Computed example of a mutant assay.
Amino acid sequence: MARDLPAFTLAGYDKGRGFLTQALWFAVMNTVFMAWFCPARLRVALLRAFGAKIGEGVFIRHKVRILWPWKLSIGDHSWIGEGAWLLNLEPVAIGSHVCISQEAMLCTGSHDHRAADFRYRNAPIVVEDGAWVAVRATVLAGVTVGRHAVAGAGAVVHRDLPELTLQTVDGGRRPVEEPK
Rank of each mutant, 00 (worst) to 15 (best):
R3W: 13
P6A: 05
A7S: 14
A7P: 03
L10K: 05
G12Y: 09
G12C: 02
Y13K: 06
G18H: 12
L20E: 13
L20C: 07
L20D: 10
A23S: 15
W25H: 01
F26H: 09
T31G: 03
V32N: 07
W36Q: 08
W36D: 13
C38E: 09
A52I: 05
I54M: 10
G55I: 05
E56F: 11
G57H: 11
I60Y: 11
I60A: 15
V64Y: 02
I66S: 08
K71P: 02
I74R: 13
G75D: 14
D76L: 10
H77I: 05
I80T: 09
E82P: 00
V92L: 13
G95F: 04
S96P: 05
I100V: 15
S101F: 04
E103V: 13
A104H: 07
C107F: 01
T108I: 02
G109K: 03
P124C: 00
I125H: 06
V126D: 04
V126S: 11
W132L: 08
V133I: 13
V133G: 00
V133L: 10
T138W: 12
V139C: 06
L140D: 02
L140W: 01
A149S: 08
A155P: 09
H158L: 00
D160T: 08
D160G: 04
D160K: 06
D160F: 10
L161H: 03
T165A: 06
T165Y: 08
Q167R: 10
G171D: 15
G172K: 11
G172D: 12
R173L: 11
R173T: 10
P175D: 02
P175S: 05
V176Y: 08
P179E: 09
P179W: 08
